[in-house]
Every structure is written in structure tokens, then in C-alpha cells.
């Protein structure tokens, strides 16, 4: 796996934009900006009438990088894994786990932690922990 450059300033700026987005969703819609919650509720069963709003949010999420590329004139660097079985297993685990645990990096990690929710703090410590162990195992035990 190649090294990546430590980018503290753009990380802080991008993070602040994510935080502001979460604050605005609370101010306008009164809802937590949890991506797994918003996306999973695009599928039935529907328990409220907020479908179009969720769809608009996801459309904005997908359009976001294009606005950045238009503004900066530079492409967005990406290195996505290429192993199909790995991507399928990882996708299933991420989707299932996020909904089963009622949140992901945004809902628990950003919104919950900033609300000082003990549940979200426990979830964040747990997924950070299993994430670190998974990379440790995959790169240094198997891949070593």
C-alpha cells in the first residue's frame, strides 16, 4: 500500500464543511446527518414522508466532488482497491454493520460524538478499534 501525504489543512477545512453541513441539516430539518441512516431509508419500508429530501441530500453528496473540481481545476486523487471479493465483503459488512449499529462515521463519529452521546462514543471507539485490527491483520500478519 503506498504512503499517502499528511494533509492537515485540507483535512480540517473539509471536516469543518462536513460539521457545518450536519449543523445546517439539524437547523432546517431537525435531523441527524447520518449517511447510513439517510441512504438506507431510501429503500422501503417507509416510515415517514421525507423520501425526496433524502434523495436530494444524496444527489448533493454525489455532486459535491464536481463542484470542488470545477472550483479548484484539479482532479480528486483516489486509490480504490481492485479486488472484487474484498470489495463485496467489505461493502456488505459496512452496509450491514452501519445499519445494525444505528450509525456510521457521520452519525456516530461526527454528530453523536459532538452531542456527547455515550452510545456514539462507544460505537466510534468500537469501529475505530476493529478497523485498526483489520488493517493490522491484513497488512502486517497476512500481507507482511
Amino acid at each position: 500500500m503506498p504512503a499517502t501525504e499528511f494533509t492537515p489543512l485540507t483535512a480540517l477545512l473539509g471536516g469543518a464543511m462536513i460539521g457545518l453541513s450536519a449543523v445546517l441539516l439539524m437547523a432546517f430539518q431537525g435531523r441527524i446527518a447520518g449517511i447510513s441512516g439517510i441512504v438506507s431509508r431510501l429503500f422501503p419500508p417507509y416510515t415517514d414522508n421525507a423520501f425526496l429530501g433524502r434523495l436530494a441530500f444524496v444527489a448533493g453528496l454525489i455532486a459535491g466532488p464536481f463542484v470542488v473540481m470545477a472550483a479548484t481545476g484539479a482532479p480528486i486523487a483516489q486509490t480504490v482497491p481492485t479486488s472484487t471479493p474484498l470489495l463485496i465483503i467489505a461493502g456488505l459488512l459496512v452496509g450491514f454493520g452501519a445499519v445494525w449499529g444505528n450509525g456510521c462515521t457521520s452519525g456516530h463519529g461526527v454528530c453523536g460524538v459532538s452531542r456527547l452521546s455515550v452510545r456514539s462514543l462507544a460505537a466510534t471507539i468500537t469501529f475505530m478499534g476493529t478497523g485498526v485490527l483489520t488493517v493490522l491483520f491484513a497488512r502486517h500478519v497476512i500481507g507482511g
Binding site: 459496512v94 454493520g97 445494525w100 457521520s106 476493529t130 478497523g131 485490527l133
Partner: peptide, 25 residues
Amino acid sequence: LLLGAGLFGIGWGLAGFCPGPALTS
């Protein structure tokens, strides 16, 4: 909560994607 978060973290560590960045990509 802990089972869901634990499984989520394993998938996150395997691919480096969580739901927001995956959709944004």
C-alpha cells in the same frame, strides 16, 4: 450497537470506504 459498529469497522478497514465517501466517489 457494538456488534454493528464492530462489523462496520472490519469492512471499513478492508476497503477504506464508509458510506459517505463511497457515495461521494
